[in-house]
């Protein structure tokens, strides 16, 4: 439970930091979107958080969004994944509609249990979008921290991998060995 609170706090701090960064950038290159994110509106980011946090929920270790997965996806929609922008816009809209239809509330306002039901439904009804989100969530969570996800190498630590990794491990005596 403690880990969870700590992680949640980290996320709030991060969002606060994001406001500053976002504001600075918005002047130059981000037409239209004045929120906390490069691509997503704040509402879309909340919807995506609902989906990603079911794909990788919090347990003793952070959930997808707590580890920065939304940041990862958001950034890549301005970089390598520009071609998936429409898929996210449409897919999130559909997921939200599904929530309104099934539970009479916005996706962001639904409970975690309801989120689970919605993600399961999206997996069946819109498998292309689900696979995309699943893939990107895994990449953000288990990939390199430099892209905004896997914050502080949290998933690698979870797996018991040395973080930072061991460097400089030559196992032969360098003074011996074949001439060069």
């Amino acid at each position: 439970m403690q880990t969870r609170n700590k992680a949640a706090l980290t996320r709030r701090q991060f969002v606060a930091a994001g406001v500053l960064g976002g504001a600075a950038l918005a002047v130059g290159c981000k037409a239209g979107n004045q929120g906390n994110w490069d691509f997503f509106t704040d509402a879309q980011a909340l919807d995506l958080t609902a989906l990603c946090d079911q794909i990788i929920p919090a347990d003793g270790f952070p959930s997808a969004s707590q580890a920065g997965v939304i940041t990862y996806i958001d950034r890549q929609l301005f970089r390598h994944y520009r071609r998936h922008r429409d898929a996210y816009r449409d897919g999130l809209e559909q997921a939200d509609a599904l929530s309104r239809k099934s539970f009479a509330k916005a996706l962001a306002d639904a409970t975690p249990l309801e989120h689970l039901a919605i993600v399961s439904a999206v997996e069946k009804q819109n498998p292309t979008f689900f696979d995309l989100v699943r893939r990107h969530t895994m990449e953000g969570y288990y990939g390199s921290p430099r892209h905004g996800g896997n914050r502080d190498g949290v998933s690698w630590r979870m797996l018991g991998l040395a973080e930072p990794p061991v460097r400089g491990r030559a196992q032969y005596d360098l003074r011996k060995g074949a001439a060069s």
Binding site: R167, R169, A170, L174, G177, A178, S180
Partner: peptide
């Protein structure tokens, strides 16, 4: 695996 060709060995990353 050992110094060779003027370069050092693998550090097993």
């Amino acid at each position: 695996s050992v110094p060779y060709n003027g370069r050092g060995p693998c550090m097993r990353c």
